[in-house]
């Protein structure tokens, strides 16, 4: 498993899911992929299919309807997997945490590894969050980074 684990750390594939966020964090996640921030130079590739992904990037608070979708997506990602909650809403529910249709942060539904606060999160912080997740993953897999 040496080479597979090494490449997992060197080139993680991320999948982005928007719960019921305001879009602010989503466009910043997308901005990470574009020329100014360009995370692809670190080998990070954005995926549309959960079965290909290593890292799940979740934005926005969980509402009563997306909770099921989020659980489903999480179950489809193969192990080992990492979950990054991007934005204050995804961390705790943010300004919406008490609204009637909101359950709260992402950790109410699935386990979260890295929290990235901010409203809206800056792309630099998102990249930092992914790096932190990879350090955690390499420790768990016993691979030197």
């Amino acid at each position: 498993m040496g080479i597979i684990n090494t490449s997992r750390i060197k080139s993680p594939w991320i999948m982005h899911f928007d719960n019921s966020s305001c879009n602010g964090c989503d466009i910043e996640v997308l901005a990470c992929l574009t020329p100014l921030y360009d995370v692809e130079r670190f080998g990070i590739v954005n995926m549309g299919n959960p079965k290909h992904a290593d890292v799940l990037v979740v934005t926005g608070p969980v509402n009563r309807r997306t909770a099921r979708v989020l659980k489903n997506l999480y179950a489809q990602i193969p192990d080992p997997k990492m979950v990054i909650a991007v934005g204050t809403c995804a961390c705790s529910g943010g300004v919406f945490h008490n609204c009637y249709n909101i359950l709260g942060g992402v950790d109410k539904v699935i386990p979260v590894d890295v929290y990235v606060p901010g409203c809206a999160v800056k792309p630099e912080a998102i990249i930092d969050g992914v790096v932190l997740a990879l350090q955690k993953l390499s420790k768990a897999l016993g691979v030197a980074k």
Partner: peptide
């Protein structure tokens, strides 16, 4: 959704808190 509060916008509706 199926488990959301019913008719939350009514003044008498028990519709969670203020948020924030």
């Amino acid at each position: 959704a199926q488990d959301s509060p019913v008719t939350p916008m009514l003044k008498t509706g028990a519709a969670g808190g203020k948020g924030g």
